[in-house]
């Protein structure tokens, strides 16, 4: 079965966590990383409702957000909340974020706690 989780990385040398992944650690220059699952809870840093929809979407608008996770990492994803607010607590889930013909793309979706 396909792995539908979303991963960042942790530097094996200094422990710095990054999302998305990089080839070199910005803290120590390390080159070896282990995957870390992007999960848990966080707060909405900012959000927008996109009305000028990109390709592949048939909706009235698409609600996107940057969320600050408890781990300190931040992530961009879709916000599934009818009453969005800056600072509101959300939980990370993974779902279909884009469909291209038959292809389903999985990614981060934030839901209210």
């Amino acid at each position: 079965m396909e792995d539908k989780k979303v991963y960042g990385v942790r530097c094996k040398a200094c422990g710095k966590e990054l999302y998305p992944a990089h080839a070199l650690c910005p803290e120590c220059g390390g080159r070896e990383f282990e995957p870390i699952e992007i999960r848990g809870e966080g707060v909405v840093l900012t959000y927008t409702d996109v009305y000028a929809l990109p390709l592949d979407y048939a909706l009235r608008y698409l609600r996107l957000a940057i969320v600050e996770l408890e781990s300190g990492l931040r992530a961009t994803g879709q916000l599934l909340d009818d009453d969005p607010k800056i600072g509101k607590r959300v939980r990370v889930t993974v779902g279909v974020v884009r469909e291209r013909g038959e292809e389903k793309i999985y990614g981060l979706q934030f839901v209210p706690v």
């Binding site: 900012t46 959000y47 000028a52 929809l53 990109p54 390709l55 994803g77 884009r98 990614g107 981060l108």
Partner: peptide, 30 residues
Amino acid sequence: TDFVASLSHPQAEYIYGVTLPALAGMFTRL
């Protein structure tokens, strides 16, 4: 719009439907 959006991060931004106006919208709200 998609052409310009393709400059965003492919895995961490673009796949979510991020466009340049979307990044600017989130920036503006903050």
